[in-house]
Simulated assay, not measured.
Amino acid sequence: MTKVNVLFVCLGNICRSPMAEAVMRHQVKEAGLDGVIEVDSAGTGDWHIGHPPHEGTRKQLDAHRISYEGMKARLVNDNDFGQFDYIVCMDNNNIRDVRALLERSEVKREERKELFTFMELLPERGFADVPDPYYSGNFDYVYELVEAGCRQLLTKIKTDLSL
Rank of each mutant, 00 (worst) to 15 (best):
residue 69 E to Q: 15
residue 76 V to M: 02
residue 116 F to C: 05
residue 136 S to C: 08
residue 71 M to P: 03
residue 64 H to T: 02
residue 136 S to L: 07
residue 109 R to E: 11
residue 85 D to H: 15
residue 107 V to A: 09
residue 70 G to R: 11
residue 130 V to D: 10
residue 77 N to G: 00
residue 136 S to D: 06
residue 104 R to T: 05
residue 101 L to Y: 03
residue 76 V to I: 15
residue 122 L to P: 01
residue 85 D to S: 14
residue 134 Y to P: 07
residue 80 D to R: 10
residue 65 R to G: 13
residue 75 L to H: 05
residue 82 G to D: 12
residue 115 L to A: 06
residue 114 E to K: 13
residue 120 E to W: 10
residue 62 D to S: 11
residue 104 R to A: 14
residue 127 F to N: 03
residue 118 F to Q: 05
residue 70 G to L: 12
residue 77 N to M: 13
residue 114 E to D: 12
residue 124 E to K: 10
residue 71 M to I: 13
residue 122 L to C: 04
residue 80 D to G: 06
residue 110 E to L: 11
residue 94 N to V: 01
residue 84 F to P: 03
residue 121 L to R: 06
residue 137 G to R: 04
residue 115 L to V: 11
residue 136 S to A: 07
residue 86 Y to V: 07
residue 137 G to P: 12
residue 129 D to T: 07
residue 117 T to P: 14
residue 113 K to S: 15
residue 107 V to Y: 00
residue 75 L to F: 10
residue 119 M to N: 11
residue 130 V to W: 03
residue 84 F to E: 09
residue 124 E to W: 04
residue 62 D to E: 15
residue 117 T to F: 04
residue 101 L to M: 15
residue 93 N to C: 07
residue 127 F to Q: 02
residue 131 P to L: 06
residue 104 R to V: 05
residue 110 E to C: 07
residue 105 S to P: 00
residue 79 N to S: 15
residue 64 H to P: 09
residue 108 K to S: 06
residue 125 R to G: 02
residue 97 D to I: 08
residue 114 E to M: 14
residue 112 R to E: 13
residue 81 F to H: 02
residue 112 R to T: 14
residue 83 Q to R: 15
residue 119 M to P: 10
residue 95 I to L: 13
residue 124 E to Q: 14
residue 71 M to L: 15
residue 78 D to N: 09
residue 70 G to A: 09
residue 86 Y to R: 10
residue 63 A to F: 07
residue 110 E to R: 14
residue 73 A to I: 06
residue 61 L to P: 00
residue 134 Y to D: 01
residue 61 L to R: 13
residue 68 Y to V: 08
residue 124 E to H: 12
residue 120 E to Y: 08
residue 92 N to G: 14
residue 78 D to G: 02
residue 85 D to C: 09
residue 84 F to C: 10
residue 126 G to Y: 05
residue 68 Y to K: 10
residue 102 L to A: 12
residue 120 E to T: 13
residue 130 V to M: 04
residue 129 D to P: 11
residue 64 H to A: 04
residue 139 F to H: 05
residue 63 A to N: 13
residue 123 P to N: 04
residue 138 N to Q: 13
residue 135 Y to I: 02
residue 99 R to T: 14
residue 132 D to K: 15
residue 99 R to F: 11
residue 95 I to G: 08
residue 127 F to A: 03
residue 134 Y to I: 00
residue 94 N to T: 01
residue 131 P to I: 06
residue 83 Q to H: 15
residue 136 S to F: 08
residue 87 I to T: 03
residue 116 F to Y: 14
residue 72 K to C: 06
residue 117 T to L: 10
residue 113 K to I: 03
residue 130 V to F: 05
residue 88 V to W: 00
residue 103 E to Y: 14
residue 117 T to M: 13
residue 69 E to G: 12
residue 105 S to Q: 02
residue 66 I to A: 08
residue 64 H to M: 03
residue 127 F to V: 00
residue 118 F to K: 00
residue 119 M to L: 15
residue 126 G to T: 03
residue 119 M to F: 13
residue 85 D to K: 09
residue 115 L to H: 14
residue 135 Y to Q: 03
residue 124 E to C: 07
residue 138 N to S: 11
residue 126 G to E: 07
residue 130 V to L: 04
residue 131 P to H: 07
residue 81 F to Y: 05
residue 74 R to A: 12
residue 81 F to L: 01
residue 88 V to A: 02
residue 78 D to Y: 10
residue 76 V to A: 00
residue 102 L to E: 15
